[in-house]
Amino acid sequence: MKLLAIIPIATLTACDPVPTAEQFIPDYLGVETALLDDDLVQFKVAMTNALSSKDVDNYAECAAAQYTLIRGWGFARHVRTNVNEEGGVWRADAVYTISPSLPRGLRTIDAEVVTAACVEKGIPTV
């Protein structure tokens, strides 16, 4: 009886496609930036092979950190991020404020520290 229960399960899993390494390597498709105000910036990013929405959120944060440094400022504050996935492509639409000094709020980032972490993790920036 146990043998019959094991055979169908083994047969089903043998038919499942075996994942390849490429399916676990993120493919970053680019960043679009739009300056909404002097200190308010929108970042639209896209990627494939994300494991969760956190991966695409991290990509947007990396873009925001590098952009902040490019503008000559040191800090950013997360305002909002909308993430969706369709057909295997993950997209994030994120908005950050940027500033020369540490802004008030809970979701602030030190642009130098975050950019360095992004480089270390292999996440592209702007």
Rank of each mutant, 00 (worst) to 15 (best):
M1Y: 10
K2N: 15
K2S: 14
L3I: 14
I9A: 07
A10R: 05
A14E: 03
A14C: 10
P17K: 13
P17Y: 11
F24Y: 14
P26N: 09
D27I: 14
L29P: 00
G30Y: 03
G30M: 05
V31P: 00
E32V: 12
T33V: 14
A34D: 12
D37R: 13
D38W: 11
D38T: 13
D38G: 11
D39E: 11
D39K: 07
V41Y: 01
V41K: 02
Q42M: 08
Q42P: 03
K44H: 11
V45C: 10
V45D: 04
A46F: 05
M47H: 06
M47Y: 04
T48W: 02
N49V: 04
N49G: 06
A50K: 04
A50M: 08
S52K: 07
S53W: 02
S53K: 12
V56Y: 07
V56R: 03
V56M: 04
D57V: 10
A60P: 08
A60W: 07
E61L: 13
A63S: 12
A65C: 06
Y67I: 00
I70M: 14
F75S: 01
F75C: 01
F75Y: 15
F75W: 15
F75D: 00
A76L: 09
V79M: 14
V83I: 14
G87R: 08
G88W: 04
V89D: 01
V89K: 03
W90E: 01
A92D: 03
A94R: 00
V95K: 08
Y96Q: 00
T97Y: 11
I98P: 04
P100V: 02
S101L: 09
G105Y: 05
G105I: 04
G105E: 07
L106W: 07
R107I: 11
R107C: 08
T108M: 02
D110M: 02
A111H: 00
V113Y: 09
V114A: 07
T115H: 10
A116F: 01
A117S: 10
A117T: 01
V119P: 00
E120S: 10
K121A: 15
